[in-house]
Design a protein around this nucleic acid. Structure first.
Lengths: 230, 230
DNA sequence: AGTTAACTGCGTCCACTGGACACAATAACG
DNA sequence: CGTTATTGTGTCCAGTGGACGCAGTTAACT
């Protein structure tokens, strides 16, 4: 199962030397996904880029799902080293590092949905997050929950602002706001909340990432302070 | 473009009566997705369930992507009516309603990633959210950002806890925690944050949803109070 | 050295996918 | 009535993930 992600089982001694490596295959897949989107990654395509037939890949990977899993963990990489800081700053830079990861490989947003096996790199990210929250005085479960909220926020903003090649066909942010404005102006009674908010809607442009992050951190601070008091 | 989601253009007068409706097709797709996951939804399958050929569907829908979009907006439905409450409680119930939506149709988590066109139901959800935040005194952009944070959190938790049929093959929560524990116990120096948090990890079981939500709301409250003061 | 057993990469095959296109049947209009 | 728009269908195509068996390569064992 997760052997592929964690172990690299000892190379066999008997037969001919393997011409490929799991890492090499995954790297080829990542190149394709970065350039043309996750949908462009097919066994055939990856194999062709390596000058092999697709069936050769199945000697290294049980199936496409597993290949994508390996690609994902590899593309995620290890979080960059950061000097030790107070928890709030540490979480802030952690969130920024994570966002930059999704920026580099937007398809990670697609390949890492739902419950899946955790690879070493992903676990390292979690670990760094927990190192950051260690100074809060919260218990382990709460620390993990805090990491989860922040991760969710980073993912959400990344999904909204990043254009992924190939994925759902190009929908510009302008198109979206246009349909929004069209809808509310043509039938304001149907969308009273939007109608009320519309005049002051543009005042917070592109600050969604920081807005949400600061709210979450503020909320954590409230809890931390409450705990420290007693 | 979004005509499919918003307009229903007037029925043509000339040819034979259409035997199908867009809504009917979408409903059939939803049934399949609910029962067997989004991957089981193919043109062929949907058509077969309706006792038609797949090519018949293309008279109603330009392609699969658009079908999924219509399915998504229809499955989302309109948010349930709620009595007017103070903003914090209103947001709380709004988030719970949203979670329940994902619970009913877990595949929505997959079909609504990335930038896409907004349908009327999705916009109504946003509108209700803005009605809830109207009492905060924040400007429109900030209100929208607040909605976005909460939506992201709901999605994140839903992704973690819901099992979607068909999707990435069944990985139980136990398997995940097992690899986690295996990794950290076999090499604690590599994951110091996890090693430290591990003893108190189980103390917050299944409370991730509320934990995160309360933190976000606490954070919003801080901002609202700060604004009210001046 | 010779044999055996493991292992690699490849060719072939299959069911299935989304979709283009032409064609006959249908129904309302002049 | 014919004309014309619109429907559902049949056929075709390139591409997908994957099962399976076959030949060639290589190290370990006798």
């Amino acid at each position: 199962m997760s052997d592929l992600l964690w172990n690299r089982q000892p190379p066999p001694s008997r037969g001919p030397k393997p011409a490929l490596t799991l890492d090499g295959i995954a790297s080829a897949g990542i190149v394709i996904a970065d350039a043309e989107g996750l949908d462009a990654v097919s066994m055939q395509r990856v194999a062709a880029d390596l000058n092999f037939t697709k069936m050769a890949l199945y000697r290294y990977v049980p199936g496409k799902a597993e290949l994508v899993a390996v690609m994902s963990d590899q593309a995620m990489g290890a979080p960059p080293d950061q000097p030790k800081k107070p928890w709030r700053e540490a979480l802030e830079t952690w969130a920024n590092d994570l966002y930059r990861g999704f920026e580099r490989h937007p398809w990670l947003l697609l390949s890492t949905v739902g419950r899946r096996l955790i690879g070493p790199n992903e676990l390292t990210w979690t670990d760094r997050g927990l190192q950051a929250t260690a100074g809060t005085g919260l218990n382990g479960g709460e620390q993990l929950d805090a990491i989860v909220v922040i991760t969710g926020h980073v993912r959400t903003i990344a999904q909204q602002s990043l254009t992924m090649p190939g994925g759902t066909v190009g929908v510009t942010a302008e198109q979206i706001t246009k349909t929004l404005i069209d809808a509310v102006t043509s039938d304001p009674d149907r969308f009273p909340g939007l109608a009320a908010a519309l005049p002051t809607l543009g005042e917070n442009q592109n600050e969604g990432f920081n807005f949400g992050l600061q709210r979450i951190l503020d909320g954590l601070e409230v809890l931390v302070a409450r705990r420290a008091k007693r």
